[in-house]
C-alpha cells in the first residue's frame, strides 16, 4: 500500500474540482456527476461506470464518516485529474488520517466474518492504482488511460 505523510504530488491537469460538506446524502449525486464526467471525457466506458461508482462511493463514505466523523461543517475536496497515462480522482478530508496496519485482511478465514473493513479492499481490486497521502486523509485512485 502506498501510504505517506506528504501531500499528493502534481499528477496532471485538474479537470473538475468540487468541495462538499460531510453529509452522506451528498455522496450519490456526486458519484453520478463524477461518473458522467469520466464517461463524457471518454475516460471510462459506460459499462464500467458501476465499478468506478462503487469505488468512489466507498472512498467518499470513508472520507465523510471515518475522516470527518460526519461533521457537516468539515469539507471533502474532490478533484478529477488527467495525467499523461492515467486519470486520477483525489478525495481529501479534514481528518487525521488512519493507521494502515489497522485495516484488516478481510480475506483470512476469521476475518471473512467481519462486518466492516472491505471498502478499501474493494477499491484496490477495481482500480489500477490506489495511493494514500497526508497519513490517509487523502486517497488518490486511478485508472490507466486506454
Amino acid at each position: 500500500m502506498h501510504f505517506v505523510a506528504e501531500a499528493p504530488p502534481d499528477l496532471g491537469e485538474v479537470i473538475h474540482e468540487r468541495e462538499i460538506p460531510s453529509a452522506i446524502e451528498l455522496i450519490a449525486p456526486l458519484v453520478i456527476r463524477l461518473n458522467a464526467i469520466l464517461v463524457d471525457r471518454g475516460l471510462i466506458p459506460e459499462a464500467d461506470g458501476r465499478t468506478v461508482a462503487l469505488c468512489l462511493d466507498e472512498a467518499l463514505r470513508n472520507a465523510i464518516v471515518h475522516g470527518n466523523r460526519s461533521e457537516f461543517r468539515k469539507k471533502v475536496l474532490v478533484r478529477v485529474i488527467l495525467g499523461s497515462d492515467m486519470w486520477w480522482i483525489a478525495i481529501e478530508d479534514e481528518g487525521a488520517g488512519f493507521d494502515p496496519e489497522a485495516i484488516p485482511d478481510v480475506e483470512t478465514e476469521d476475518a471473512l466474518w467481519n462486518e466492516g473493513g472491505r471498502g478499501i479492499r474493494l477499491i484496490e481490486h477495481f482500480m489500477d492504482d490506489v495511493r494514500f497521502y497526508r497519513r490517509g486523509s487523502c486517497i488518490v485512485v486511478g485508472r490507466r488511460l486506454s
Binding site: 458501476r50 466507498e58 463514505r61 467481519n114 462486518e115 466492516g116 472491505r118 471498502g119
Partner: peptide, 16 residues
C-alpha cells in the same frame, strides 16, 4: 442492482 461494502457487511451480520 447495487451493493457496497456496507451492504456486504450487513449480509455477513445477517448470516451470523
Amino acid at each position: 442492482e447495487y451493493l457496497s461494502s456496507a451492504g456486504l457487511g450487513a449480509l455477513v451480520g445477517l448470516l451470523k
